[in-house]
Design a protein around this nucleic acid. Sequence first.
DNA 1: TTGTAAGCGTTATCAG
DNA 2: CTGATAACGCTTACAA
Lengths: 325, 325
Amino acid sequence: MAAAAGVSPTTVSHVLSGNRPVNERTATRVRSVVSRLGYVPASLARGLQAGSTSVIGLLIPDISNTFFAELAKGVEDAAHHLGYGVILCNTEFDSDREDRYLGLIRSRFVDGVVYAAGSPPSRQRLDALVGQFPIALADEEVEGLGATLITTADHEGGGRLVGEHLRTLGHRRALMLTGPSDLRSSSARGSGFKEAFEGEVVERVGDFKEESGYRLMKEALATGRLEQTAVFAGNDLMAIGALAALREAGLSVPQDVSLAGFDDIRAASLVFPPLTTVHQPAYDVGHTATTQLLQYVARHQVPPSARHTLPVQLKVRESTAPPAP
Amino acid sequence: MAAAAGVSPTTVSHVLSGNRPVNERTATRVRSVVSRLGYVPASLARGLQAGSTSVIGLLIPDISNTFFAELAKGVEDAAHHLGYGVILCNTEFDSDREDRYLGLIRSRFVDGVVYAAGSPPSRQRLDALVGQFPIALADEEVEGLGATLITTADHEGGGRLVGEHLRTLGHRRALMLTGPSDLRSSSARGSGFKEAFEGEVVERVGDFKEESGYRLMKEALATGRLEQTAVFAGNDLMAIGALAALREAGLSVPQDVSLAGFDDIRAASLVFPPLTTVHQPAYDVGHTATTQLLQYVARHQVPPSARHTLPVQLKVRESTAPPAP
DNA sequence: TTGTAAGCGTTATCAG
DNA sequence: CTGATAACGCTTACAA
C-alpha cells in the first residue's frame, strides 16, 4: 500500500489517522490510492500495537430467548455507538462452551465483557477474571464475586407488584412456580412476592424454561383439586407452560385461576388470555451495562463496584381477575 | 511468561500447541507456570502471525426478531463447533451501521461472513467484498452478486403450500400482504402462492414488519366490505398485525376470514387463534450457511457459487378454514 | 513535512 | 530437544 502511493507506511498511517499533519498534496495522493485499492488497515495489527481490540464479548445463555435477544440488542446498540464491536458468546448453559469463551476473553481478544449468563457454576471461572479484567454483570448478579459493575432490573420490586396486585384482587392462596433457587433474580422475585402477598404461598422450583412451567403445573394439578386461586410463575416462559397445563386440565384463566408471569416477553401479550406480567427492561439492562462498562474500558481502567437497578412495571392484562367466590 | 519458566518463547509455544516434541520434564514445568500465571496466548498476535482470526461475522438486521435470533443460534452453534467465534453485526436496516461493519470485515478482523441482511442497498457495498472474501448469503439472496454461497429456505415452495391449502379449503379470492418487493424471499413467496392458488389475488406491499400488516389490513378494510375470504401475509409478524386489524374491525378468524402467515416464529402458535403458517428452518439456514462457509474458510479458499434450498413445512393451525358459505 | 526503526506477542524457519 | 531470529502489519518515538 505504502509503496503504491510512493510514501512510507508511516505517512499512510498518519493520513488515515490524522495523528500528525501531512502535506495536502501527499495526503490527497495517498487517499486516492487507498480508495482505489480499497485498503483498510488490518485491525489485528492495529490492535496488537494498541493493546486493545475495540470489541467486547457478550456472554448469554441463549440468544433465541427473546429476553436475551432484547438485551443483546441493547448491548450492541451501546457498543456500536461507542465504536465497539460485540462478539456473541452463546453458552447454551453449557459450561464447556462457557469455558471456551472465557478462554477467548483471557486471550485478550476483547476489551471487556458483558456477562449475562449467571448460572452458578460460572462463579469460579469468573473469579479468575474479575479484578483483572473489565466485566459488567447484566441481569443476573453472581454471589460472592468481587468488585463488579452490576445492572439488573428490580426483580424484588417486580415480585412485590405482582403480590400486591393479586392480594388486592382478593386472592389469599397462591402457587409460585419459581426459577432456579440459586439465581438471585429468581429468589428476589419470590421474596418480593411473598412479602407483598401476605397470604399463603406454596412454592415449586423450576428452571425458567417453558417445559418446567408445564411440568410443575401438571404436578400441582395431579394432587387433586388445586388449592390455590392464583399462580405466579417465575417468568413468562414458565407461565406459558403453566397455561398449557391449565388448559389441558380444563381450567380456564382467569375464571378458575389467575396467572401472572415475569419479563413481558413479546409472547406474553400474544397468548390467550394475554398475560399479566412484569415488564423487565431487557434492552435497557443491556444498554446500561454496556455503557457503564465501556466508560472504564475506554480509559483502560478496571471498573469499580457499582450497582444499577432499573425500574420494572406491572402490566395488568387479562390473565388475572378476582378469585371465583 | 517464557522467562518465568526459564525457557524460550518458542518452547512455550510448542508445549502449548504440541507442534513439536518437548522434553517431558520441560513441558511439565512450563505447564505448571502457565497454569499458575493463568497465561493464555494473545489471540491477536497469534492471528496476526497466522493470518486468520478464527472469528466470522454475522450480519443481520435485527437480533431481537426471533427469526434472526434462531438463525443466529444456528450460526453460532456451527461456528463454535468448528472452533470459530461469531461477531454480531446488527444493522438495524441502517446503512451507516452496515458500512461500519463491512469496514470491520475488510480490516480482516474476521475470516468470513454470514450475511443475512439482504436489503437491496447492500448490493454495491457487498460487491467490493465478494470474490475476494469468503461470504455466505443466508436466508436472502442478493440479486446480481457474483460467486457466492447461498442458503435459503424454499420460499417459493412455501408460498405454493399456502396457496394449495387455501384453494383446497375452497377459497377463490385472496388478499396478499407482501413484504418488500425487492427481496427475493418476499417475491418468491408471492409467486409460489399465486401459482398454486389459481384464484383471484389482490396484492398490497408492506415491509415485513408487524405495523405494516396492521396498516395494510386497515386500508383494505377501509374500502368497505372485504372482498376476499382469505389473507396471506408475507410473514408472521405481518399476519399478527393483520390479525389485530381484523379483530378491531369486528371480523373473526377464521369464521369471517382465513389468515395465513410465513416463518413459524414462536409467536405464531401463541396468538389466538394459532396461526396457520409455513415453518421456515431458521436455525438450519444459519447452521448450513455457516458450515458451508467454514469449509472453505478453513482451507483459505474463497467459496464457489452454490445454492442450498432448505425444505419448508406447512403448519396448519386454527386461523384457516373453509370460507363462509 | 517525511522517513527509519523499534516493538506489540505470537509462530515458523533455521541452527545447534 | 531447544533456542535465536524473522516476520505478520501496524503505530509511534526519534531523526532528518
